[in-house]
Computed example of a mutant assay.
Amino acid sequence: MQQDRCCSPRIRFKMLHRKTYHVKDLQAEIEAHTDIFHSLDESGQKILKSLEGSEDAALLQRRLDNMNFRWNELRKKSLNIRSHLEATSDQWKRFHLSLQELLAWIHLKNDELTRQMPVGGDVPTVQKQNDTHRAFKRELKGKEPVIMSALETVQMFLADQPLEGLDKLYQEHRELPPEEQPQNIARMLRKQVDDVKTEWEKVNVRSVDWQKKLDVTLERLMELQEAMDELDLKLRQAEAIKGSWQPVGDLLIDSLQDHIEKVKAFRAEIAPFKENVTHMNDLASQFPSNDIHLSPYNLNRLDDLNTRWKLLQV
């Protein structure tokens, strides 16, 4: 439960605001002691004048100089830390929002890629899917420099470890619960960077795999279409020859033998068609095993060609 709180973006924002508040509070405390400091300094200067020339005067002067030096260093340190913290807070917010937006965009692209599936069952459908996915890949390619630049910028920010200096300050004043320790900001940003990297790689791998499947399926569908077109042409030619025959009842007895010879020759001519039919059906049978469903058009055409082949042999 504690770990979840440490990883909450809302906690990170609260943490930065709270640290800014603590530094402002420290500055206010310093300012509240300004009058005391000036009063001590003035009193010291008066005493110094009364002790002029003595050893005590030299000792007092060193103490006053040391007090002034430490006071100025404390104010300078407080102002520097406040300025640095406010700048870091703004940077962290920008990085956080930028990475969140990139992650959301990648998730949208992932969903969009899912909607492109499954692969179609005929050449026109797969060609359309191919065009859609090529446009999708162009979007990924165009976004890549933006994502890489954002990741590189955040990693450089993390490498600088800008919040380390705050740890020493707060160790001197108060203990913070784990969810408010400065190093957790860097941990949260690193997690966001890892998430963006992981999701970006995932969507690119899915895109490559999808393109491969489209390419392979399109090639197989075109091969099937070519086989069906070839068989269809041969069947049409054979059907035209068979359609030119006279009905048996109209044949003269003297011509029967000639017609019998023609039928025998016809059967010999169409016998090789069986190889075309077998090749076509073998190609069609590969699609279901690869989780690809042929379109109704292709299924109807397969059924029509097989039926015509059977009728041709009757």
Rank of each mutant, 00 (worst) to 15 (best):
80 N>R: 12
93 K>D: 06
94 R>Q: 14
67 M>K: 10
78 S>G: 10
74 L>A: 13
64 L>I: 04
76 K>I: 04
77 K>W: 08
70 R>V: 01
90 D>R: 08
66 N>W: 00
79 L>P: 02
71 W>L: 05
67 M>L: 15
64 L>W: 01
90 D>W: 05
71 W>M: 08
62 R>W: 00
74 L>W: 12
91 Q>C: 12
91 Q>W: 10
83 S>T: 10
97 L>M: 02
76 K>R: 14
78 S>E: 15
84 H>E: 13
74 L>P: 05
70 R>Q: 12
94 R>L: 09
74 L>N: 08
94 R>E: 14
83 S>P: 02
97 L>A: 05
86 E>G: 01
65 D>W: 01
63 R>D: 04
90 D>M: 05
83 S>C: 07
99 L>I: 01
79 L>A: 07
98 S>C: 08
67 M>C: 07
83 S>E: 11
68 N>M: 03
91 Q>H: 14
91 Q>G: 08
64 L>D: 05
89 S>I: 08
78 S>M: 07
72 N>E: 14
72 N>F: 02
92 W>S: 14
97 L>Y: 06
81 I>P: 09
67 M>E: 13
78 S>Y: 08
86 E>M: 08
80 N>W: 07
82 R>W: 09
97 L>S: 04
75 R>N: 08
62 R>L: 01
64 L>G: 04
89 S>Q: 14
94 R>T: 13
76 K>M: 06
82 R>E: 15
87 A>F: 10
99 L>Y: 04
92 W>A: 14
96 H>G: 01
78 S>L: 04
90 D>P: 00
68 N>D: 07
99 L>Q: 03
95 F>C: 01
65 D>E: 14
68 N>I: 00
92 W>L: 11
64 L>F: 02
99 L>F: 05
75 R>S: 05
80 N>D: 12
68 N>W: 01
79 L>D: 13
77 K>P: 00
84 H>M: 08
87 A>D: 14
99 L>H: 03
87 A>N: 12
94 R>M: 10
69 F>S: 15
99 L>T: 02
95 F>P: 00
78 S>V: 07
71 W>K: 09
72 N>Q: 13
76 K>H: 12
73 E>V: 02
81 I>G: 03
81 I>N: 13
98 S>Q: 09
96 H>Q: 03
68 N>L: 02
71 W>V: 05
62 R>G: 01
72 N>M: 06
92 W>R: 11
83 S>N: 11
66 N>T: 00
97 L>T: 00
85 L>C: 15
67 M>A: 15
95 F>V: 00
75 R>K: 11
75 R>M: 03
63 R>Q: 06
87 A>M: 12
78 S>F: 01
73 E>N: 10
67 M>G: 04
63 R>M: 05
70 R>K: 11
98 S>W: 06
93 K>P: 03
72 N>L: 04
97 L>F: 06
98 S>F: 07
84 H>C: 04
99 L>V: 00
76 K>S: 12
